[in-house]
Amino acid sequence: MQQAIKKSEKIASFELARVIALVAIISIHCQLFMDYGYIDEEPWLNFVTNQAARFAVPLFFLIAGYLIYPKLNAAPYKTAKDYCIPLMVIWLVWSIIHLLLPFNLGVVAEQGYLVERQGYWQYLMQAPLNSLFEGGLVHLWFIPSLAIAVLMIAWFVDNKCRRLIIPFAAIIYVYGLIAGSYGVITEVATPIFTRNGPFFSFLMVAIGFEARRNNWSMSATFALLVATAGMLLHFAEAYYLHGQGQIFNMNDFLLGTAIWATGLFFFLLAKPQLGNQPIWLKLGQWVLPIYVMHLLVVIYMNNLVAILELQTVSADLVIFFGTLVGSVILMFIIEKTPISFAKLRSIKLKGKPVANCPSAK
Results as ranks from 00 to 15, higher is better:
residue 7 K to C: 06
residue 22 L to Q: 02
residue 23 V to M: 13
residue 25 I to H: 04
residue 30 C to V: 13
residue 32 L to P: 04
residue 32 L to I: 07
residue 32 L to H: 02
residue 33 F to I: 01
residue 34 M to K: 14
residue 35 D to P: 04
residue 40 D to A: 14
residue 40 D to I: 00
residue 45 L to C: 09
residue 54 R to K: 12
residue 55 F to E: 03
residue 56 A to T: 02
residue 57 V to N: 04
residue 58 P to G: 06
residue 60 F to M: 06
residue 60 F to T: 02
residue 64 A to R: 01
residue 64 A to T: 09
residue 67 L to H: 07
residue 73 N to H: 15
residue 74 A to D: 07
residue 76 P to M: 10
residue 81 K to Y: 12
residue 83 Y to A: 07
residue 84 C to L: 08
residue 91 W to S: 02
residue 94 W to M: 10
residue 95 S to K: 03
residue 96 I to N: 05
residue 103 F to W: 00
residue 105 L to F: 07
residue 107 V to H: 01
residue 107 V to K: 10
residue 111 Q to V: 00
residue 112 G to F: 05
residue 114 L to Y: 14
residue 119 G to V: 08
residue 121 W to C: 15
residue 123 Y to Q: 13
residue 124 L to W: 07
residue 126 Q to N: 09
residue 127 A to L: 13
residue 128 P to W: 13
residue 131 S to V: 12
residue 136 G to P: 08
residue 136 G to N: 06
residue 138 V to E: 14
residue 139 H to D: 04
residue 140 L to C: 10
residue 141 W to S: 06
residue 142 F to D: 01
residue 143 I to C: 00
residue 144 P to D: 05
residue 145 S to Q: 00
residue 146 L to V: 06
residue 148 I to G: 01
residue 152 M to G: 08
residue 153 I to P: 01
residue 153 I to D: 01
residue 153 I to R: 04
residue 165 I to F: 01
residue 167 P to A: 01
residue 168 F to K: 05
residue 172 I to S: 06
residue 173 Y to P: 04
residue 176 G to T: 02
residue 177 L to P: 05
residue 179 A to F: 10
residue 187 E to P: 11
residue 192 I to R: 00
residue 195 R to T: 05
residue 196 N to T: 09
residue 196 N to H: 12
residue 199 F to M: 11
residue 200 F to L: 11
residue 201 S to N: 04
residue 203 L to K: 04
residue 204 M to V: 07
residue 207 I to N: 03
residue 208 G to M: 05
residue 209 F to R: 05
residue 209 F to D: 03
residue 210 E to Q: 14
residue 211 A to R: 08
residue 212 R to G: 14
residue 213 R to I: 03
residue 219 S to P: 08
residue 219 S to W: 11
residue 222 F to A: 08
residue 224 L to S: 02
residue 233 L to F: 13
residue 237 E to G: 07
residue 242 H to T: 12
residue 245 G to H: 08
residue 245 G to I: 07
residue 249 N to K: 09
residue 256 G to D: 00
residue 256 G to P: 04
residue 258 A to Q: 02
residue 261 A to D: 06
residue 261 A to T: 05
residue 263 G to F: 00
residue 271 K to A: 11
residue 278 P to D: 12
residue 279 I to L: 14
residue 283 L to Q: 11
residue 283 L to H: 08
residue 285 Q to K: 15
residue 290 I to G: 07
residue 291 Y to V: 07
residue 292 V to H: 04
residue 295 L to V: 11
residue 302 N to T: 00
residue 302 N to E: 06
residue 308 L to N: 05
residue 313 V to K: 13
residue 314 S to A: 15
residue 315 A to S: 12
residue 317 L to N: 09
residue 323 T to V: 06
residue 326 G to E: 03
residue 331 M to R: 01
residue 340 S to N: 05
residue 342 A to V: 07
residue 343 K to M: 11
residue 344 L to R: 06
residue 348 K to W: 06
residue 349 L to G: 10
residue 349 L to Y: 13
residue 350 K to E: 11
residue 351 G to P: 06
residue 352 K to W: 04
residue 352 K to F: 03
residue 358 P to D: 09
residue 360 A to W: 08
residue 361 K to E: 15
